[in-house]
Design a protein around this nucleic acid. Structure first.
Length: 848
RNA sequence: GCCCGCGUGGUGGAACGGUAGACACAGGGGACUUAAAAUCCCCAGCCUUCGGGCGUGCGGGUUCGAAUCCCGCCGCGGGUACCA
């Protein structure tokens, strides 16, 4: 008997696939194409077990589709621009470029032994000038189509380092390096007009049938369509009217004050005139730019002294407050507050002793608001108090529409549809990104670079010893001539958000080295991505930006109409987690231990070195600082790629997090060894046996279940079925030929998950050619049904007995049999059943 | 704060609204072995007076029947527009 030696066998089959060109994708209109794509990795330096899981899922799909006769495109690349490379350069003095390309080399080297069926000839990194040059060309196309503009927007400003910070570099409102209190500062920045597509991006979500409902919901909420009223509060005396947008115009009679953003033009004007207001506004600008920081900050306000009048009552004066929770980006940057029906407004009103005016009560409980705002669902009927449009009992929805109609008829307001989605700010004041290909000319203004001058390449001679953007302080890089008038001019030094890079890479894979962004024949053939796989953390930004980008590319002729939604199906997978092993030092500080340093016995953990007991924190996100990272390279060296692949596909459902355990990996390795032993034994067997038909039946049931599992992204259930099938084959007394046939099917069904072992078993049992190319087995429906079935019998929903009956027995016969069972008789205890429910093929429930 | 998920034995998990716990890990027992490893076989949610009772984070509800649907909580995770 031969032992299965993954270390020798795996490279052998990898070479065989390479020589046969099994995974090289070539256009072939005679075959249906299938494009499977996993979100490409950031080149952090080493692959992570989470990558292994992600790419194994894609590979299972790719190999399965290949076996079902598809022409499969399954590419890989790197999302290679971004901050970590600059941080590494700052920390250790290297260059982002060498750091990034070295990391890519390492990661490719680590990925290849895993045996993914990838077309490596299509690999690229987004920091390749060949790629970002095409991105620059598209940026210029977008400019021509009016999809790009500049405007002022706020950034996190570190007043000590004099630099812009990313949100993650702001910790508790302070700069991560300087520790200085961060402030929000305005800067002129580049924007994509994604807001022009708000309605379209929202509506098209309905067509994304093969996307998870939760992702579509998140995107819909993010786009945030709302109907409301836009109107102005006229000023008292001199001054300007204040235009507001509200989604609850029906509560206008409950208005207590008008609030404006600290960035509102009126606030800015007052800031310039009034030192007290200037101080307050400065206070409001403290802290980072995130919605979280703004919304969880203490609510602050200041009375400006300005007064406006209520649009329905010229004698009713309302104060104008500046409030830190009002965003200039949404609506008009000004609101009216109705404390009785909005908790935030109520908290603010109580704090600053502003009036609280009820506008409606609950039908059954007409009590005034005290400490909790009354905010019923808009679909619920309420009792209105003195409503100006004459409402008595009506829902919020009805009242809102009635109010809008009323305002429009009287001419003091307009019903408008508002979206929360903001334009995409793509400017980054950083080096390691795609340069924005424009030139600033004193005479001509902002001018796009000529396409023949692309790519605008990043200079290599830069330093990271001081904070700020190295492009800004480069001695010569900025110098250029104006593409329009030829006069000396300066290059733009902002680079693009890395989300731009990842918004079109899927299209570039269809012809990665073309000298245009895409080539029509290739995108026509390969697009769309049939199955996209990646983390749920990308549910909103990356996926929404990609959807926008595909539309913009279509407008510029780089993608066909059908690719406006580029991802036909989306699957979001969970993370791989690992226990943290922790002890404490003499000062009580945590000390983290590597899994290799820990022994597990009797459900407890001990340090190998000292025998000291270790605290186990289960299911933690893998993190280098916690020493709970398992390296796929070690796993592959110890057990082989198939074991790693089998493990990450087993046990946990793919969309959920999976905990990596050494015991689980060991178990996977044992199972694969067992499959090999079984195959080896069967290969040498001969002669007839008993139960060939039963084995065939089980084989087809397994084909059916495994196929359904793969189709439905329930790989863990496919694997459970394959475990069960191994048990079945092992226990079967069927003849040698029947067992060999069963085992060849086993090889085929396992091939997507454990391709190397599958090839070896296939070859050993006389399979023809590569199992990778063998047509996927098809279950015979006739072999899936049994002649008889077992029905559980419930009494009042509790299982009391069961009966085994022919599969087509009549309902009344089943009912009679069920009532006669001991279990039912005992449970009924002489009572007469009121009703008997027979669900054919499922269950019988006796209601007593 | 807001939006979206998730929560089932000691553990990972399975279960078209229809027998809760498939399949595995850890555990217990046995076979083989001088012994061990490896392998193979068997047992196994909890409680029980052996009739049964209780069980899918907690509390309600809908239903003949709820892990699954609805409402309200609790806990954990993801996102929150400059992490990718």
């Amino acid at each position: 008997m031969s032992r299965y030696d993954a270390r020798n066998i795996e490279p052998k089959w990898q070479k065989a696939w390479q020589e046969a060109g099994t995974f090289e994708a070539k256009r072939d209109p005679s075959r249906p194409k299938y494009y499977v794509l996993e979100m490409f990795p950031y080149p952090s330096g080493r692959i992570h077990i989470g990558h292994v899981r992600n790419y194994t899922m894609g590979d299972v799909v790719a190999r399965y589709k290949l076996a079902t006769g598809h022409n499969v495109l399954h590419p890989m690349g790197f999302d290679a621009f971004g901050m970590p490379a600059e941080n590494a350069a700052m920390a250790s003095g290297g260059h982002p470029k060498t750091w990034t390309y070295d990391n890519i080399d390492t990661m490719v080297e680590q990925m290849k032994p895993l045996g993914f069926g990838l077309d490596w000839s299509r690999m690229f990194a987004t920091c390749d000038p060949e790629y970002y040059g095409q991105q620059q060309a598209m940026f210029i196309d977008f400019m021509e189509k009016g999809l790009v503009y500049r405007k002022s927007a706020v950034v996190n400003w570190d007043p000590v380092d004099m630099t812009v910070l990313a949100n993650e570099q702001v910790i508790d409102g302070k700069g991560w390096r300087s520790g200085a209190e961060v402030e929000r500062r305005e800067l002129t920045q580049w924007f994509f007009k994604i807001s022009d597509f708000s309605e379209e991006l929202l509506e098209a979500l309905d067509g994304l049938e093969h996307w998870p409902e939760k992702v579509r919901l998140m995107q819909a909420n993010w786009i945030g369509k709302s109907r409301g009223l836009r109107f102005a509060f006229p000023p008292v005396g001199e001054g300007e009217a204040i235009e507001v947008f509200t989604t609850r115009p029906d509560t206008l009679m409950g208005a207590s004050f008008v609030g404006i953003s600290p960035d509102h033009p009126i606030a800015k004007k007052l800031e310039a005139e009034n030192p007290e207001i200037a101080g307050f506004v400065a206070q409001c600008r403290k802290g980072g730019t995130t919605a979280e920081a703004i919304e969880t900050a203490e609510k602050l306000g200041m009375d400006t002294g300005l007064r406006v009048t209520h649009p329905l009552d010229p004698d009713w004066e309302l104060p104008v407050w500046i409030a830190n929770f009002i965003l200039m980006d949404y609506g008009t940057g000004a609101i009216f507050a109705c404390p009785a029906h909005d908790q935030r407004d109520l908290d603010f009103a109580r704090k600053y002793e502003l009036p609280v005016i009820d506008t409606f009560y609950a039908l059954d409980d007409p009590k005034p608001v005290v400490r909790e705002a009354f905010v019923p669902p808009k679909s619920e009927k309420v009792k209105w108090i003195n409503h100006f449009a004459g409402l008595d009992e009506a829902t919020g929805e009805e009242a809102i529409e009635a109010t809008i109609r009323f305002a429009e008829e009287k001419g003091w307001g307009t019903g408008v549809t508002q979206y929360r989605l903001r334009d995409w700010g793509l400017s980054r004041q950083r080096y390691w990104g795609c340069p924005i290909p424009v030139v600033h000319c004193d005479a001509c203004g902002v001018v796009p670079e000529k396409k023949e001058n692309l790519p605008v390449k990043l200079p290599d001679d830069v330093s990271f010893d001081v904070p700020g953007n190295p492009l800004d302080r480069h001695p010569t890089w900025r110098d250029c001539t104006c593409p329009k008038c030829g006069a000396p001019a300066k290059r733009e030094t902002d680079t693009m958000d890395t989300f731009v890079d990842s918004s079109w890479y899927y299209a570039r894979f269809t012809n990665p080295h073309a000298d245009t962004p895409t080539v029509a024949e290739d995108v026509d053939y390969w697009m769309n991505v049939d199955q996209y796989i990646g983390g749920i953390e990308h549910a909103i930004l990356h996926l929404l930006y990609s959807r926008f980008f595909a539309r913009a590319m279509h407008i510029c002729g780089h993608l066909p109409e059908k690719s406006k939604e580029p991802f036909n199906a989306l699957f979001t997978q969970g993370m791989v987690t690992h226990a943290i092993y922790m002890t404490r030092d003499e000062k009580g500080r945590p000390v983290y231990h590597y899994p290799e340093a820990v022994d597990l016995r009797d459900g407890k953990a001990f340090l190998k070195e000292s025998g000291a007991e270790v605290e186990v924190i289960p299911s933690a996100k893998m993190s280098k600082s916690k020493n709970n990272v398992v390296d796929p390279v070690d796993i592959v060296e110890t057990y082989g790629a198939d074991t790693a692949r089998w493990f990450v596909m087993s046990d946990s459902p793919p969309e959920r997090d999976v905990e990596w355990t050494a015991a689980g990996a060991e178990a996977a390795a044992k199972h694969l060894a067992r499959v090999w032993r079984l195959a080896d034994e069967i290969a040498g067997a001969s002669g007839p046996g008993e139960g060939d038909d039963d084995l065939l039946r089980e084989t087809h049931k397994t084909i059916d279940a495994v196929t359904k599992g793969i189709d439905g992204f329930l790989f863990n259930t496919s694997i459970a079925k394959l475990y069960a099938f191994t048990n079945t084959v092992q226990k079967s007394n069927a003849g040698a030929e029947a067992k060999r046939a069963a085992m060849r099917v086993m090889a085929q069904l396992m091939a997507p998950m454990t391709p190397h072992l599958a090839e070896e078993v296939w070859a050993h049992l006389g399979g023809e050619g590569l199992v990778a190319n063998a047509p996927w087995p098809v279950a015979d429906p006739a072999l899936l049904v049994s002649d008889s079935l077992t029905l559980p019998i419930q009494v009042n929903g509790k299982r009391r007995d069961e009966i085994t009956v022919p599969k087509d027995m009549a309902k009344d016969e089943i009912e009679a049999l069920a009532l006669a069972t001991d279990g039912v008789q005992r449970a009924l205890d002489g009572a007469v059943p009121k009703k008997v429910i027979v669900v054919p093929g499922r269950i019988v429930n006796v209601v007593a």
